[in-house]
């Protein structure tokens, strides 16, 4: 096992893509940094917090990006967003076999708020343009900063969201909600509640993420390969049928959870017999349980291909 959680963006790329295959576009040596941070005397980064480029994944040409949570929480500014958009457009120009987004972001970078907001909407449109061109777009969420704000929305514009249990996916962070509506609305220091509300297991049970993997780079890589194959087989394009099905799923979710305020009650409503035990379940036991209870309008993807295991122990 090699943890994905604590890696930097620049460590994740070679851990996921085929060894030595990734070529970065506009690398730090180009020294393109945010012009707005400098004006505020804030530190800048010569990649503006995101690596974009093209590599191989299982021999396929896959375009990719990795957001660096260690620089301003992976937040999206003008340059950061433009790099993502440029990469997505180039993926279309060059007929990429897939786009893989290693997301870790607090959303819009508030130091350049207006430009960041427009940029995130441009990223969303560019992701959907890539899908329209038939290119599977896969989002991976497993970094310690999670995926929030506008990037939490963008993630759900991908064909597939792959998460680890430690990954978090939502919109407004717990601190923002606590600041706006009080500690009784959302206690941001209640780590267990934050995890139950935004963490990978909850998102998987609700159908907001389609694949849940252990916090292991090899598991993320295998899941990405499988997701690309599944999406390529079924078609990457957004269709009316998909959106009608998603409309139905989201409407049922509202109806089925009416009056509920606690994620464990939502899990109970899914028929899970011992909701309080869910956080403690090991990956394998959780997946077996989730298979019987999770919501997803799409046909279940095939189980991630397991390499033929040597049979020494059997």
């Amino acid at each position: 096992m090699s943890s994905y959680l604590e890696l930097t963006a620049r460590q994740r790329i070679p851990a996921i893509f085929d060894s030595g295959s990734f070529e970065e576009f506009l690398p730090p040596s180009s020294r393109v940094a945010s012009p707005h941070l400098a004006q505020l005397d804030a530190p800048v980064s010569f990649d503006d917090g995101v690596v974009v480029g093209r590599g191989l994944l299982g021999g396929q040409v896959v375009f990719g990006a990795a957001q660096e949570g260690g620089f301003m929480g992976g937040a999206v500014g003008e340059v950061h967003g433009a790099k993502l958009v440029g990469m997505l457009r180039r993926a279309v120009d060059e007929g990429a076999q897939a786009v893989l987004l290693l997301l870790e972001s607090g959303g819009v970078r508030l130091h350049e708020a207006n430009a960041g907001l427009i940029a995130v909407s441009e990223v969303m449109r560019a992701m959907l343009d890539a899908r329209e061109a038939g290119i599977p777009v896969i989002a991976v969420i497993g970094g310690s900063n999670g995926c929030f704000g506008g990037m939490g929305i963008s993630a759900r514009c991908a064909n597939t969201v792959i998460m680890s249990e430690e990954g978090r996916l939502a919109m407004s962070g717990p601190e923002v909600i606590e600041t706006a509506n009080g500690v009784e609305e959302f206690d941001s220091r209640d780590r267990a509640l934050v995890w139950r509300t935004t963490g990978g297991k909850h998102r998987y049970l609700l159908g907001d993420c389609q694949v849940l993997v252990p916090d292991d780079t090899a598991a993320f890589r295998a899941a990405a390969l499988q997701a690309i194959a599944d999406v390529a087989a079924g078609g990457a394009q957004l269709t009316l049928e998909d959106l009608l099905a998603e409309q139905g799923m989201l409407a049922r979710r509202l109806a089925d959870t009416e009056g509920l305020a606690e994620p464990m009650d939502v899990w109970k409503g899914l028929g899970i017999p011992d909701p309080a035990g869910v956080p403690m379940l090991e990956a394998e036991a959780f997946m077996a349980l989730a298979a019987r209870h999770r919501l997803d309008y799409r046909p279940a993807p095939q189980a991630a291909a397991q390499p033929a295991t040597p049979t020494g122990e059997q």
Partner: peptide, 9 residues
């Protein structure tokens, strides 16, 4: 900005 909205995605 409500917990329930975040919980339900």
């Amino acid at each position: 900005l409500r917990h329930r909205d975040e919980m339900l995605g």
